[in-house]
Amino acid sequence: MENQNTVTKPAAEQTAVAERTRCGCCYRPSVDIVEQEDELLVMADMPGAQSDAIDVKFEDGTLEIYAAVAPRQEGEDYLLREYGVGDYYRTFQVSEAVDAAKISAQYADGVLTLRLPKAEAIKPRKIAVSAG
């Protein structure tokens, strides 16, 4: 009798390009992507991950997030099992020009926050008009 609208963790559509040796389900983290004046802010819900087991890659405009998550329980007697625990994987094609060298990532309270600063060339620039 599973409630139909329980918030479930969707499986990742596509696993990593190179097949991983560890099997198991890969989940697709929910994200918020916010565009600010000078940066893109990506917040991904990845509960239960460890900051040293999270891989963030940015290559040719593709942002790849992967986190290896070890099972938290093994061989338990579940009375109710509404979600699974497993790795997180998601990729994005970033259309804005991003300064790859300045990308920063932070993991706290189960949320991965990535800051992708926009490249200097496309930042809005204010041009002062001088009186003639």
Binding site: T6, M43, D45, P47, G48, L79, E82, Y83
Partner: peptide
């Protein structure tokens, strides 16, 4: 919807786990 929970039983306790990022 409401958040998903996992519930399992141990000999001396019931365990409830919920993912609540952020």
């Amino acid at each position: 919807g409401h958040p998903a929970v996992n519930v399992w039983e141990k000999d001396d306790a019931l365990m409830v786990e919920m993912e609540v990022p952020g």
